[in-house]
């Protein structure tokens, strides 16, 4: 056991414990923060697999942007902390789902020949980012462009959903704001005019 192995067990145990408490805790904000912890530790795991680009992008995208928006919404909604729920139905469904997942994982792990997977060994000169970029724009160009298109559609859809009736929406028009002059906004009234 070297230091990396100890670090691996530390990180994975943090991931497992926080995943379990993520399901157990009642407070939604705590759950979201636990998810942050899980993502962060997964990033460390990827870093140990020498995938530094992917791990930093995981922190940047999921922790830095997606979960911030999650927290943003959760905090603004002011959700009540759930006291007691009917757990029997949940138990049934969770048992079924976990059974399916267990069988899947079992098949993946025990029917797959891991001996063929080569040891990851690069020199320090190996540029992870460069290789990923090369693959994305040559071999996987089509799927890359499809992903971009899907994201674009999602953005347009989000904007379209939020476009409300113009009369209801209060907004300021900067073009009209800067057209205002002293004469149009200010009227000096002398005492004798009153």
């Amino acid at each position: 056991m070297d230091i990396l192995t100890i670090l691996f067990y530390l990180v994975t145990s943090v991931i497992i414990i926080s995943s379990m408490s993520l399901i157990i805790v009642n407070n939604t904000v705590h759950a979201a923060l636990l998810l942050v912890l899980i993502f962060f530790n997964s990033a460390i795991l990827w870093l140990m697999l020498k995938a530094e680009f992917l791990s930093i992008v995981l922190v940047l995208v999921y922790v830095g942007a997606v979960l911030v928006l999650f927290l943003f919404v959760i905090m603004l909604l002011d959700l009540p902390i759930k006291e007691k729920v009917n757990q029997k139905l949940y138990l049934l469904f969770s048992l079924i789902i976990s059974l399916i997942m267990f069988i899947e994982l079992y098949m993946v792990i025990f029917y797959h020949d891991f001996s063929q997977v080569s040891e990851i060994s690069h020199s320090s000169e190996f540029n992870n980012t460069y290789e990923i970029g090369l693959l994305l724009f040559t071999k996987h160009l089509f799927s890359f462009e499809i992903t971009a298109l899907i994201l674009l559609v999602a953005i347009i859809a989000a904007i379209a959903i939020n476009m409300t009736n113009k009369q209801r929406a209060l907004k300021q028009d900067p073009a009209r704001q800067i057209e205002e002059t002293k004469q149009s906004r200010l009227r000096i009234i002398k005492d004798k005019d009153l």
Partner: peptide
């Protein structure tokens, strides 16, 4: 190698 990304991640 990914220094600039690391900084972006940390500031975010």
């Amino acid at each position: 190698n990914a220094g600039i990304l690391y900084i972006l991640a940390m500031t975010s």
